[in-house]
Amino acid sequence: MSAFVERGSKTLVYLFLAFGCLVCLTPFYWMFRSSLMTLDQIFVMPPIWFPSPIQLSNYHDALTMFPFHTYFLNTLTIVSLSVLGTVLTSSLCAYSFARLNWPGRDKMFALILTSMMLPGAATLIPTFLGWRTVGAINTFIPLILPSWFGGGAFNIFLLRQFFKTIPKELDEAALIDGAGLFRIYTSILLPLIKPALIVVALFAFLHHWNDFLSPIIYLNSEKNYTLAIGLQQFKGQFNAQWNYMMAASTVVILPTVLVFLIGQKYFIEGITLTGLKG
């Protein structure tokens, strides 16, 4: 009897989870299915689940109707330079906060951590005015340069935790062997925290690829637009052409999905770590 109840409740668990999967995946499918349809098919009521014929040319049309390759290259430039800055400076700073002794270190670290709680909206306007004063509006600088200043409190925090798990004897031995602090950082510690660096790089990639507010505030000419603005613009122009809109959306989403599927082991590890520390 009890085994029977057990099996029944397990089936229920699977049923709920399967339903959840359906809810999670259907929007993706709906987007993809719409991206392959002719406009006539889109308007068929009640809606049909499978496009026939499959109109692949939607992708070609959507991607040539607006300067998609420019937006893509702009996004790629911003994202890759930001990720590079984040990984390099956050690891260097985390190394200092975890390992090196200097007066006021822990106070400074605590101070930097408080900025994690700060709503971004609170610093938005003066930061904008600052960039405007130095003439950096409509350049990529406001979107890239901040990442080169420690790459955000969250990443420093994460990497500091990782540095702390490495036995101190390792750098002390290297120090005795005459290695400089920078050498120790680059050739001993960095290779050891490589998984953590990947986590940081993935988070930074997603953060900048998905950024919406900064591009709409700082970029104002078409040659500088990112995919975030491009898609917005597209929506304004092709309002009712759902097949094109969904084709464009699919293309914009694809890189993030691929990066996630390839790096998901690291993602899950990274998020798990932050949660447990909290």
């Binding site: 959840g20 993706f28 987007m31 719409s34 998905n210 898609l231 999905v257 990066v259």
Partner: peptide
Amino acid sequence: TVFYLPTIVPVFASSMIWIWI
């Protein structure tokens, strides 16, 4: 993986999907 997947979609793209849905 499946339950996490929607979270990585850029909000400017997921908003498009939801306007449509």
